[in-house]
Amino acid sequence: MRYPEDVRYTSEHEWARLEGGLVTVGITSYATDQLGDVVFVELPQVGRKLEAKKPFGVVEAVKTVSDLYAPLAGEVTAVNEALAENPGLVNQAPYGEGWMIRLKPEHADDMKKLMGHDDYAQLIEQEQA
């Protein structure tokens, strides 16, 4: 499995991508592989302030359900409305069209606290061992 290098990762299998001062958040391909087909994603309201490492939503798959955790603190500026109609985008393009929320981070520096590509790949290897 491949993990893109232009995003940072959490141990809860979210990814975060900093672009133009905003952070886009989704779940990794490892997470979607573990979950199976996603049938519903519960996302917060735009404007809600999220705390780092606290749940902000729920991803519901056929077989199982999982909480979504904020990679860093910030205010929700957008949610992926397309997921309401087509939650399967999370499986098809977890790092692209399957994104979940966009945040205005409290401290953009918090991105550095997240895992890089190599550390995340290593974490997955350990989880699978």
């Binding site: 199976g36 087909d37 499986n91």
Partner: peptide
């Protein structure tokens, strides 16, 4: 085997 391609498929 839990799944081969996808549960829904």
């Amino acid at each position: 085997p839990l799944r081969y391609t996808g549960d829904v498929r």
